[in-house]
Amino acid sequence: MANVVEIRSLTKAYGDVKAVDNVSFALEPNRIYGLLGRNGAGKTTIMHMLSAQLIQTSGDIAVFGEAPYENNRVLSQLCFIKESQKYPESSKIADVLAFAAMTFPNWNQELADRLMEDFRLPPKRRIKKLSRGMLSSVGIVVGLASRAPLTIFDEPYIGLDAVARGLFYDRLLEDYAEYPRTVILSTHLIDEVSQMLEHVLVIDQGRLVLDEEAESLRGRALTVSGPLAKVNAFAAGYKELDRQGLGSLCSATLLTNGSPEDVRARAELAGLEVATVSLQQLIVQLTSGKMSRKADDAR
């Protein structure tokens, strides 16, 4: 099947500042993607451009094979739930859902009704009377019940407690299993969602720094430590993500390839100490190192 999303050399610049810098990736149908990175990395900007709510400075976007800007064939298949979504203040929750039912062709009212009960949303309550968490819940109900072939959630759970977030993950997986669709989950709560992801895209300072299958990342990242020369010799063949030194000792986080057991055995044989790196540790390392370097630059 053709790709659901294809982005090439996508850039969004505000004056000299590039919020998104030459990003390219493709998304296959019916998979759950994680768009990960720190706050302000450029994730939201990318998703705004995907949904044609923001217009790119340069680069190409194809969603379902077509440019999304002012394109109903694309937009009606796409549901983008974002933290900053505005609703008319005097409207009731029921009004918002009624509009969603009209705009999303795959809308499922039964699911919407069930989710309303799950999240304890009073349909007659007006938007301006809702708490932050309830507002997030409205977005979650719309996003799930839309069953849009491309559903995007951008930090959809602000103001929700762990129980409600767990409910969201449960319902998402349940409905996804029955009605597969392409899902993009954008979040900085990596540890909560990483198990659900099939593929991971990591954005840092406007650039795409990782585009990999989640399962292939698990176990491939290792931290080896030992004498500098030995670490250097071992690290030579792999992509190095992070390095920390302590005198003549050094530890390096590497993205290895091949069977993790073999790599591990070879490292131990070379006299190095080996520690595993979890997916979320890996992403934190990928995106935090540059932050401190940037702080150094600023000084």
Partner: peptide, 16 residues
Amino acid sequence: SQFFPFALGFSIRRTD
């Protein structure tokens, strides 16, 4: 100020 961002967020074209 209120309905435009709402509609745009719900996949409505600007022209529409």
